[in-house]
Amino acid sequence: MSLSPLCDWDDAFANMKHVKDSAELPDFWAARAAGYRADLTRGGHRLDLDIAYGSHPREKFDIVWPDGTPKGLAVFIHGGYWMRLEKAHWTDFAEGARAKGWAVCVPSYTLAPEARIHEITAQIGQAISTAAGLVDGPIRLSGHSAGGHLVTRMLCSDSPLSGSVSERIAHTLSISGLHDLRPLMHTGMNRTLNLDLEEARAESAVLAQPAAAAPLTCWVGGGERPEFIRQARLLSDMWTGLDVPVRCEIDGNHNHFTILEGLKQPGSPITTAFVGPVPQEGP
């Protein structure tokens, strides 16, 4: 005998249903990102596309390079519930970090149902490790929605990252991240994700022991679905006291999609959370 869920979990995770004209967004993102890549090329800025980090066709990342020696490596992991979208939708969101001097890596990964979530976690670990071999200095991680899940999994005691790569992580920014995957078992999406309780528990950062003391920020829009606000607060609450500097930032009235727009601006609060403030010049 199975118990019925206590709420409508499909609705709880249905971002597009609650944002007007959101069905048009994937095509809009793809076109805008393509225009940004074209602008970079015309402007003489370095952009390396489709660097392989594995043998699968989707195991590739792009790097958007700054003008000069990079301060370090910034990684942005896209969302889409582990089953939609790809790196080419998001290139323009690298601009804020690029303008502040960071090399920005944007990977794709194999989508469900071809890959289980734990396999995607391992892929992202390999992507970060490969990119870390190309860019010296500190590493700052960011991911949106399912990408927020994937970057926080890099911080857990069973992280796929080696110790030498983990030690370089200076900060992690989970934007509207999913940190407790168990409720997803009650959604129609699970016909694609194929989560069972064992994997949902193992892939939930809220149930994990953090492995490193690098700071973590859980960033979420105040106009998002309540479940995403709960998930941001939950990880912050669970990891407080576990030797990780962690904070939760609820950003205005942003929804699940507008929350990302500030990443294109070097001076925005969310870009500052991602890669840090611009260093102040001395007198």
Score class of each variant (00 low, 15 high):
118 H>W: 13
262 G>H: 00
78 H>L: 00
226 P>N: 07
74 A>H: 06
192 T>Y: 15
78 H>F: 02
89 H>C: 06
97 A>G: 09
14 A>R: 14
172 T>R: 00
166 S>F: 05
40 L>I: 12
261 E>Y: 01
253 N>G: 08
263 L>P: 00
101 G>L: 08
240 T>K: 10
89 H>Y: 15
75 V>K: 03
81 Y>H: 13
64 V>W: 08
134 L>P: 05
15 N>V: 08
56 H>Q: 08
146 A>T: 11
250 I>T: 03
112 A>G: 09
4 S>Y: 13
34 A>N: 04
94 A>V: 05
176 S>F: 02
74 A>N: 03
65 W>G: 01
256 H>W: 02
195 L>I: 07
141 L>H: 02
63 I>P: 14
72 G>W: 04
147 G>Q: 11
93 F>T: 14
173 L>H: 04
277 P>C: 04
209 Q>I: 13
130 T>Y: 00
114 E>P: 11
81 Y>C: 05
131 A>V: 07
161 L>I: 03
33 A>C: 05
173 L>W: 07
220 V>S: 04
225 R>Q: 11
89 H>M: 12
124 I>G: 00
65 W>H: 13
27 D>R: 09
38 A>M: 09
150 L>Q: 11
257 F>K: 00
276 G>H: 03
248 C>H: 10
276 G>R: 03
283 P>D: 14
239 W>P: 05
86 E>K: 14
35 G>M: 12
223 G>A: 01
176 S>M: 03
205 A>M: 06
2 S>W: 10
235 L>I: 05
100 K>E: 07
194 N>R: 15
134 L>S: 13
29 W>L: 05
127 A>M: 06
65 W>Y: 08
206 V>C: 09
276 G>F: 06
23 A>H: 09
196 D>H: 07
121 T>G: 08
165 V>H: 09
182 R>C: 00
157 S>Y: 02
247 R>P: 00
59 E>Y: 12
128 I>Y: 03
91 T>G: 13
63 I>D: 09
15 N>M: 10
229 I>T: 10
161 L>K: 01
177 G>V: 08
92 D>W: 07
222 G>L: 06
181 L>A: 06
160 P>H: 04
132 A>L: 02
197 L>D: 15
127 A>T: 01
186 H>N: 13
135 V>F: 04
240 T>S: 13
247 R>D: 14
49 L>M: 08
225 R>A: 04
10 D>N: 15
8 D>V: 05
85 L>W: 12
113 P>T: 06
45 H>I: 13
119 E>P: 01
260 L>N: 03
259 I>F: 00
65 W>L: 02
153 R>E: 13
219 W>V: 00
27 D>N: 10
205 A>H: 05
43 G>Y: 00
258 T>F: 01
133 G>S: 12
120 I>D: 00
21 D>I: 09
104 V>M: 01
227 E>K: 03
48 D>Y: 01
15 N>K: 03
2 S>D: 12
223 G>S: 04
110 T>K: 04
132 A>F: 00
201 R>D: 10
192 T>P: 01
23 A>F: 10
3 L>H: 14
193 L>W: 07
64 V>Q: 07
72 G>Q: 04
218 C>Y: 01
158 D>T: 14
129 S>T: 15
98 R>C: 11
43 G>S: 08
213 A>L: 01
55 S>Q: 11
97 A>C: 06
161 L>R: 03
277 P>H: 11
41 T>Q: 05
93 F>V: 15
137 G>E: 10
106 V>K: 02
44 G>N: 12
28 F>L: 14
166 S>W: 10
196 D>L: 04
209 Q>R: 14
